[in-house]
Amino acid sequence: MSYNLKENLQKEERFAGGHRMCAGCGSPIAIRTVLRQLDEGDRAIVTGATSCMEVSTFMYPYTSWKDSFIHNAFENAAATCSGVETAYRSLKKQGKIDESCKFIAFGGDGGTYDIGFQSLSGAMERGHDMVYVCYDNEAYMNTGIQRSSSTPRFADTTTSPVGKVVPGKSQQKKNLTKIMVAHGIPYAAQTTFIGNFKDISEKAHKAIYTPGAAFLNIMAPCPRGWRYPSGDLMEITKLAVETCVWPLYEVIEGKYVLNYRPKNKLPVTEYLKRQGRFSHMFKAGNEWMLEAAQKEVDRNWEDLQNLCEQR
């Protein structure tokens, strides 16, 4: 069945508005889009890691979550979700419940790449029938823009500030999607908000309906941390894809598939210059940073293309 944006948007909204997330934030868009890919009538039990998303959508006595939702702590959304999923299997096996349920966990990059990494790795290795969705905004935004292992090199954050000696974050971004692939899970994908949302919607549907553990990494920019005007969100994600900073790909049963190849791969500066967190890179004398950033993108893009071409 071919993708149709209009039909997709007419599906039941499972994530209510009125929450407290910032305008121009990618996280609620990621959540709404993923939940919309549940087939009509299917139940989902959602787990959320402590994050902007959690404190903004489930402040007692209100909740934005129309499906059952559990927040446990920062570092254990994957383990918590695996507990819920296991309870489901146990109760179903014993005939104590009869419904069919899907299990989805959401966490930011802090709760996924860093503090929740062990919990995530454990759940993926055990192969629970669940999807872990990382909404990756490349820093600890909830606590005020501290660097994470997902923060790209040179980014200005409050714990990797651009100082007189050290120009922002010194290390490159961790490639979590590849690490998840190394777990041998049946489905892993990287996506973001592009055009008519075909890429993210189809991947979310596959992730939810692939039996076993699945991982979805969604670039979800943060206007406060990345310092872009909130209306520019979709342009930022488009540039991330067109520069190959954030390529769209999926790995099905270990096979890499490139979902989009830019016709004209744009220079990384097109992406960097739109964001305040990289503004120091454009100052005179800092050309080497731009060169280094381009080199890193080129190397990663080359690696990915090789993986996708392998038979």
Binding site: I70, E75, N76, A79, T80, G83, L91, S119, R126
Partner: peptide
């Protein structure tokens, strides 16, 4: 659930018990 840590042991228990088990 043969978890990878005690932290996850209790996390899975919380998820499971909240789920109705």
């Amino acid at each position: 659930i043969a978890v990878e840590s005690e932290h996850s042991a209790m996390s899975t228990c919380i998820g499971a018990q909240a789920a109705g088990a």
